[in-house]
Design a protein around this nucleic acid. Structure first.
Length: 257
DNA sequence: CGAACCAAGACGCAGGACCC
DNA sequence: GGGTCCTGCGTCTTGGTTCG
């Protein structure tokens, strides 16, 4: 319940137009019977789905490492670097103003470059580079100068994965099943707490087509009981397809008019 | 509960070097 | 020559923790 009340605010673009989306992170609807059996069914709000499907804004953070960082500026820079490290070109150039925003420097604080550098940027880079095994990365930088005195205009960061991270990611990639062998689409199954997984909206939509006028959720309950109690416990490779066939068979034998 | 302590963060200054 | 940077140092503020 608490999670369902958590809201997300996303700044993104829709057809070259800047949009702010404010939404709950998911909504939940479940019968008392399913709840008593330990099932939890949730759906993502429609405005959030295209945002969640876009992988670029997301990064996998190492929380144990992040929590050990001493400076708030180290934390913010670490999040930035994790967001670009998997890109083809894992580098980013930020103006001083953008750097201040990214690092979360309050307005009218560290206004001189020397202070920003000495007290925020340099200590943060040193902290992240001091433990490449923990951060999983190594960061290099170049200062972009211009004008009299060579005033710093921008800073370019280049992020490299640490060797341990490269080896680990290769190992994980080798352990993943081949995509060609994956018959069930990811959208078809929402979560799998125990036993038979719950289905996504696409499966229910197809089930409604297969069994018009039927309550597909009641059919699902019937199907799950049958699956659980059947004598022949041969594994079913395509559960969503099996459920839809069950609905189709039921509707053809007992059509509702 | 309040004082003492500590670390992080913020800011200032001096002197020298560099760039336009 | 003026503007800016860097290094090094010191001081102050703030927030959190520890201890009596």
């Amino acid at each position: 319940m608490r999670l369902a009340r958590t809201t997300a605010t996303c700044h993104h673009k829709v057809k070259d137009e800047r949009v702010i989306t404010v939404s709950s992170i998911f909504y939940a609807q479940i019968t008392e019977e399913f709840r008593s059996k330990g099932w939890f069914r949730f759906n993502f709000p429609p405005p959030l789905i295209p945002i969640l499907k876009e992988p670029m804004p997301f990064a996998r953070l190492r929380m144990h490492f992040m929590l050990g960082l001493r400076s708030k500026y180290s934390v913010n820079l670490y999040q930035l670097f994790e967001s670009i490290i998997n890109q083809h070109d894992p580098s980013i150039e930020l103006s001083v103003k953008e750097l201040r925003t990214v690092m979360g420097v309050p307005p009218r604080k560290l206004t001189q470059w020397v202070h920003l550098w000495q007290k925020a940027v340099e200590p943060a880079l040193e902290e992240l580079n001091a433990n490449p095994a923990g951060s999983g990365m190594h960061i290099e930088h170049d200062l972009v100068r211009a004008g009299r005195g060579g005033k710093v205009q921008a800073i370019k960061f280049r992020v490299q994965k640490a060797n341990e991270r490269i080896v680990k990611e290769r190992t994980i990639a080798q352990q993943l099943p081949s995509r060609k062998r994956t018959r069930v689409k990811a959208n078809d199954i929402i979560c799998s707490p125990i036993g038979i997984p719950m289905f996504g909206e696409r499966v229910y939509a197809n089930a409604k087509k297969a069994a018009p006028r039927y309550d597909v959720y009641a059919l699902e309950k019937e199907w799950r009981e049958w699956i659980t109690n059947r004598e022949d416990q041969t594994p079913i490779t395509n559960l969503p397809g099996h459920f839809i066939s069950f609905c189709k068979s039921k509707a053809s034998r007992y059509p509702l008019f």
